[in-house]
Amino acid sequence: MDIFVTLAINGLAQGALLFLLASGLSIILGLMGVVNFTHGTLFIWGGYVYIWIFGLTGSFVLGLLGAMVVAFAMGVFFEKFFVSRVYGNVPAQILITLGLQVIFTELVRVIWGATPLSIGRPTFLAGAWDISGVVIVHYRIFLIAIGLVIAVGIHLLLNKTKIGMIVRAGVQRPDMVRALGININTYFTLVFAGGAALAGLAGALYAPLVGSMTSTAGMHNQVLAFIVVVVGGMGSFIGSAGGSVLLGLMGSGVAWFAPGLATIANVGLMAIVLAFKPSGLFGLAVKK
């Protein structure tokens, strides 16, 4: 029984991180139809910037904020100068975002070196509770809380604000949003950069969880986030939340009971979802 509690917490914490990556990816995909391969590099930039700022100031919060600000700025740069040139052209998007991913991942190696940088957890989150044999790591609880806060925040933003309305409308009919007099390109930039900031945050939170950051962590997490998007349903915010939790829990379960089958389990889940519900578990199925 105890192991299930531990696994559930591990899974939810993992799911929270995945959610930060996948939610941005999913909305970018839904609104702009862009398969964004820069998400992985934004993730590691978030991690490295966090380590750098944490090393300078010793402040956890400043580190997280710094990671988000840098990733947001990178997102604006990517969208304004590159991605916006190739809307509607999927292969070109894949290549251009991948090119940026290769360049910026290599830049990480130039700046911080190719060897992994290790980083501890901040002291106030470093501990663990021991409740009658069940070890609950503070940092994982913290991740779950952050995930929840961000999820609620995005939910409110999408459903209670005009920006959210326009984004939801744009996911379905970008041409009609334009025809109503709204400059949707501004929202494209905003959403892209917002997604980037969340990816940066995910990277910053990931580094203390695993205790280090490497330049290869980006692609791996990006592929996982893509799987979440497919499983949850493209462009669906609820889908990326549900899919992240599902994949996180499954991941921690598989890692315990059948390590080595992790990727196969994830992809297997995706194949099953695609076979029976191609629009994803929470797919909107409105977008043509």
């Binding site: 939801r168 409308a169 009919r173 009609m176 334009r178 025809a179 007099g181 709204i182 400059n183 949707i184």
Partner: peptide, 28 residues
């Protein structure tokens, strides 16, 4: 650009209505 044309005072009602399904009537 389309959005500027609209702002110049043209209301456009397309053939397929262009209604946003995922929004309420109020939000539309």
């Amino acid at each position: 650009p389309t959005h500027k044309i609209a702002k110049m005072g043209i209301g456009y009602v397309p053939e397929d209505y262009g209604v946003f399904d995922a929004l309420t009537i109020e939000e539309n």
